[in-house]
Simulated scan of single mutants.
Amino acid sequence: MSKAFTKETDGADDDELTLPALPAGGKNYITPAGYKRLRDELFDLIDNERPKVVEAVHWAASNGDRSENGDYLYGKKRLREIDRRIRFLTKRLEIAEVVDPSLHAGSDQVFFGATVTYADDAGVERSITILGIDEAESRDAQVSWISPVARALLKARVGDEVQLPTPGGVRTLEVVAVNYPRTSTAA
């Protein structure tokens, strides 16, 4: 049978492929701002985007032959993508543990939500912010709290040296500065 005549699957099993792994028994830590961003995305999908796509699919279905109706086929595919993202966001928000990093403002110890400046053994300084799995963006110098560099830095204090195992060998990092936001950026 030609692939053109096979039924497209719902894709429900794809949910697990998109979930970043949590450590066994670990929590899904997230900042208040990250939680708000995910919640806003979920509500936007439910209240705005999904109803628009449902309306488009309904209109396309009323036009007759669905097998050759591009609007209908694309709409159904987009609806599956939206529903998959809604399920993902719902699961993540259910298990999220909101941690306000501003509670540590003024501390010189590295905890979740800290912006850490460190120097490597070559003397190169870098700054990273340690955030939750669902909110960290590497292009913005943000790392997940379960990343190797974050795990090496957590609980260290300014002036401490920590060991970071890498594929190229163990590197030594010295904590130069630790900063926290003064107040929470979300409610």
Rank of each mutant, 00 (worst) to 15 (best):
Arg92Lys: 11
Val178Leu: 13
Val98Gln: 07
Pro23Cys: 00
Val116Asn: 01
Tyr72Leu: 09
Lys36Met: 12
Arg171Ser: 01
Arg50Leu: 12
Ser138Asn: 09
Asn28Glu: 07
Pro32Trp: 00
Arg92Pro: 02
Glu55Cys: 07
Ile46Trp: 01
Leu89Ser: 11
Phe5Glu: 11
Ala12Gly: 03
Asp47Glu: 10
Ala56Leu: 15
Asp160Leu: 08
Gly123Cys: 14
Leu42Lys: 03
Ser127Ile: 05
Ala4Asn: 15
His58Asn: 15
Ala156Asp: 04
Val124Glu: 14
Leu131Phe: 04
Ile128Trp: 01
Arg182Leu: 15
Thr115Gly: 04
Arg85Ile: 10
Ala156Leu: 06
Ala33Glu: 13
Ala177Pro: 13
Leu93Asn: 05
Asn48Trp: 05
Tyr72Cys: 10
Asn48Met: 05
Ile130His: 02
Arg171Thr: 01
Gln109Gly: 02
Glu68Thr: 15
Thr185Phe: 07
Gly75Leu: 06
Glu55Gly: 10
Ala119Ile: 09
Val116Trp: 03
Phe88Gly: 09
Asp44Glu: 08
Asp83Leu: 11
Tyr35Gly: 01
Tyr72Asp: 08
Leu19His: 14
Leu153Pro: 08
Gly11Ser: 03
Pro101His: 14
Thr117Trp: 12
Val175Leu: 14
Ala4Asp: 15
Asn69Leu: 05
Lys77Arg: 12
Val99Ser: 05
Ser127Trp: 03
Val98Thr: 05
Ser138Phe: 04
Ala177Met: 14
Asp134Phe: 04
Asp134Met: 10
Gly123Trp: 12
Ala60Ser: 12
Tyr35Met: 03
Asp160Lys: 11
Thr117His: 11
Gly168Asn: 13
Phe111Asp: 11
Lys36Arg: 15
Ala186Lys: 00
Glu137Asp: 09
Thr90Gly: 01
Pro23Asn: 15
Leu17His: 09
Ala141Leu: 04
Val54Tyr: 02
Ala96Asn: 00
